[in-house]
C-alpha cells in the first residue's frame, strides 16, 4: 500500500492504495464516484475518460499511483463547468444520448474537442470522437451536439470557461 494524495473534483483526497489499482477503480471503488464507467478496460471504448490536469485520459489504463499531486475531474465534477453546461443542453436538444453508458466519457472528450477547435468541422469532430464508442445513438446526435457548442462559442472568441484546469485552446 502507498499513500496517494491528489485532488478529485476540487477536493483534496489522501487515501492508501495498492500500486496496481487503475485510476478508474480508485475513483469508483475507493471514492464511490460511479459516474466513471468501465467498458472495455483496455483503452479502446472511451467510457472511462476523465480529465487529468484538465485534459482527457483513459482512467482504465492510467494507474492511480501515477496521479500523485494531480487534479482529476470526473463527470460528477462538471456541475459548475460552463462548457459542460452548454454540452449538456446540446446533448439534450440533439438527442445525443440514450442509455447513457458512454456519456461521462463523451462529455469529457467533447469538452476537450470544444476547447481545442474553433470551427465546427464535422470530419474533425468525427476523427476526435473515434475513440469513444456509443452503441445507441449512431453518433449523429453526438456530433451535432459538439458542433453546435463549437459554433455557439466561436463568435465570442472562445472566451475562457470552466474550472477544470489549464485551457488547451488550439494553437
Amino acid at each position: 500500500m502507498t499513500r496517494l494524495s491528489l485532488t478529485v473534483n476540487g477536493e483534496a483526497v489522501s487515501v492508501d492504495t495498492e500500486p496496481r489499482v487503475s485510476l478508474a477503480d480508485f475513483l469508483r471503488d475507493r471514492l464511490a464516484l460511479k459516474g466513471t464507467h468501465l467498458g472495455c478496460e483496455h483503452g479502446a471504448c472511451g467510457a472511462c475518460t476523465v480529465l487529468l490536469d484538465g485534459v482527457p485520459v483513459r482512467s482504465c489504463i492510467t494507474l492511480a499511483a501515477s496521479c500523485e499531486g494531480a487534479a482529476v475531474t470526473t463527470v460528477e465534477g462538471f456541475e459548475d463547468d460552463a462548457v459542460v453546461a452548454r454540452l449538456r443542453a446540446a446533448f439534450t436538444e440533439e438527442h445525443a444520448l440514450q442509455c447513457g453508458y458512454c456519456t461521462p466519457g463523451m462529455l469529457a472528450t467533447a469538452r476537450d474537442i470544444v476547447m481545442r477547435h474553433t470551427t465546427p468541422d464535422i470530419a474533425a469532430i468525427r476523427h476526435e470522437l473515434a475513440g469513444c464508442i456509443c452503441r445507441c445513438t449512431g453518433y449523429r446526435g453526438i456530433v451535432r451536439a459538439v458542433a453546435r457548442v463549437i459554433a455557439e462559442r466561436a463568435p465570442v472568441g472562445a472566451a475562457p470557461d470552466g474550472d477544470c484546469g489549464p485551457d488547451a485552446e488550439s494553437p
Binding site: V57, A130, G131
Partner: peptide, 9 residues
Amino acid sequence: IAYRAVRNR
C-alpha cells in the same frame, strides 16, 4: 495515433 485521451498519456 490512437485517440486524444491516449495521446495525452
